[in-house]
Structure formats: structure tokens, C-alpha cells
Nucleic acid binder design. Structure first.
Lengths: 164, 164
DNA sequence: AACTATTGCGCAATGC
DNA sequence: TGCATTGCGCAATAGT
């Protein structure tokens, strides 16, 4: 793992990092408690400096160059690539979230559909069962059909509440 | 949501220095074919655009704090608050995403449950219907079971193939 | 007018 | 090595 200095800037506050050259070199940056340092000494935004390719010999006890490795060309290039990747990644992430949300909606709908179907089937079943029972009763009751009046009450009954 | 805008960078330039603090945001961006321009983004403090809307009468003494616009205190405070808000917002956002994902899982489960139930009910119904048909056939075959018929025969009819 | 909430963005560390 | 993710701060906005 590479973890050079990490100077994380922050710690709660300050940081200002600015950027342009910032901190990676750490060292400065963490200061600025309130007022000062702020204006960064303009990092020279200078572009000029087209050079720097090659060599990097930094002395162990030396600080990094205040401005050197990061205004370099290759650096910029890397940054840009990363920025692109980041953007892509975020886009995807967002898309995923939307898809998930949509999935929720679809599932909800599906659920309703299924529930309706269940309701229907249950009702159908109930009717059938009732018919069945009615029949059974009839058979049982009239073991011998008394022809004749037959009560008009076919069998009010039963009520099978199917459960489950 | 947000919009178009493109930020114009310019960090509020103050006296003239500073500035660079914010880098980037902007300015050119997304383009830069790697390579050139690279090293510098620096927005030179250029103003770039002094025009913006009508009326701007800037008094000669418009600069409020000559050296402290944003490097100071109140600014930091605001930043900090905002950073906090941002953090909170992001946390929430993330949580929401997770909740949504979870919801998907729950709904999926529920769906399976419902589907199983439907299957069961369907089967039950099928069995009952078969029984009925069988019965009907019996009745039809022996139109008259022993002993005369009671007219109450339920008329075999049925035949409802439910659909869907 | 002052705050907070969101959002896009770049940087850097880290994961793979 | 290089892209992918992720946490973070900044600044512009939207929303109150």
C-alpha cells in the first residue's frame, strides 16, 4: 500500500486546499487557522515549466519540490483520466439507483396483480366449496328424497373459510 | 434540478491574489485532450467577464475587506457548516439507496410468497373442479339413480374455465 | 437575508 | 499500471 504521507488535510476544518498545487506535498497547508496563509501564495500557475521529465531524485531529507511533480504533464493527464473515470462511475451509480427505484415500482405493481389474482381464486374456490357442501348435504339429508316440498332451504350453511 | 450553469470560476477575486484557490472548477474542463494545456489551468485571475447584468455600480470602495474575503473567519465557518451539511446529505442519500435496495428484496420475497399461494389455490381449485365434473358425469350417466329422481338435480353445467 | 440541502466537480487514497 | 470506487472539500444553486 502506498501511503506516502497522507496528510489529509482536513481534520475538521481548514484545509483549504486548494488546489492547484496543493497539498500533496503537504507541508504547508495545514495551517490557516484563521486568517492567514490564505491567499496562497499563488502558486504560480505558471505553465511554463515544461519540463520535468525524467529524473526525480529527491533527497530523503529534502522536501519535495514545492512545485514540481504536480504541475507536470503526466500528472495532469492522470488527473484527467481519473476525473473521467469518476464521472463515469458516478453516472453509473446514479443510474443504478434509479433502476433500483424503478424495480421497486415494478415489483409493487406485480404484487398488486398477484394479490388480485389470489383474491379471485379464493373467491372461486369458496364458491365451489360451498356448492360442494351443499350437495353433500342434500345427499345426506335426503337419503330419500321426499318428493314434495323440499324445504326451500337448501342448506344455508357451511361457510368454509379457507384459510391459508 | 439544477442546472446549466457553468460556473464561472473566479473566485471572487479579491485583491488580486488569491484566487487560485479554487481551482478548477471549471473553466475548461472536459475537454482538454490531454496534453496540452495541461499544465495549467490556471485561471489567471482573469476576470473574465465583467459583465453580467445591468446595473452594477460599483463604488470605488467596493471591496469589502481588502484582505479578507474569504480567508477569514466567517468564511471558514460557513464552509464548515456546509461541509457538514454535505456530509449529512450524502449520508442520507446513501441510506436511502440502501433502503430502496432492501425494499426490492422484501418485495421479491413477498412476490414469491404470493406466487406460491397462487399455485396452491390453483391446484385446489383444479381438484375441486375435477370432482365436480366427475359428479356431473355420474349424474348424467345415470340420469336416474335408483329411486326416481328428485328433481333437484343441480343441473350439470358449469364448465367455467376461468382464464387468467 | 441568512441558512441548510443538493448537486456537479476535481483531488487523492484505495480497491481491484 | 490503469480504471473503478469512495470520502472529502469547494462552490453554485435550489429550497426555506
Amino acid at each position: 500500500m502506498s501511503r506516502p504521507s497522507q496528510a489529509k488535510l482536513n481534520t475538521t476544518d481548514h484545509n483549504g486546499v486548494s488546489v492547484i498545487q496543493s497539498q500533496a506535498h503537504a507541508t504547508y497547508t495545514t495551517s490557516l487557522p484563521a486568517g492567514l496563509a490564505g491567499p496562497q501564495q499563488v502558486p504560480q500557475l505558471i505553465p511554463a515549466d515544461p519540463l520535468e521529465e525524467g529524473d526525480n531524485a529527491l533527497s530523503p531529507s529534502e522536501m519535495k519540490k514545492p512545485s514540481a511533480d504536480k504541475d507536470s504533464d503526466e500528472y495532469r493527464q492522470r488527473r484527467e483520466r481519473n476525473n473521467l473515470a469518476v464521472k463515469k462511475s458516478r453516472m453509473r451509480s446514479k443510474q443504478k439507483a434509479m433502476d433500483t427505484q424503478q424495480r421497486v415500482n415494478e415489483l409493487k405493481e406485480e404484487n398488486e396483480r398477484l394479490e388480485a389474482k389470489i383474491k379471485l381464486l379464493s373467491k372461486e374456490l369458496s364458491v365451489l366449496k360451498d356448492l360442494f357442501l351443499e350437495h353433500a348435504h342434500n345427499l345426506a339429508d335426503n337419503v330419500q328424497p321426499p318428493s314434495g316440498g323440499d324445504g326451500t332451504s337448501p342448506a344455508p350453511n357451511n361457510a368454509s373459510t379457507n384459510g391459508q
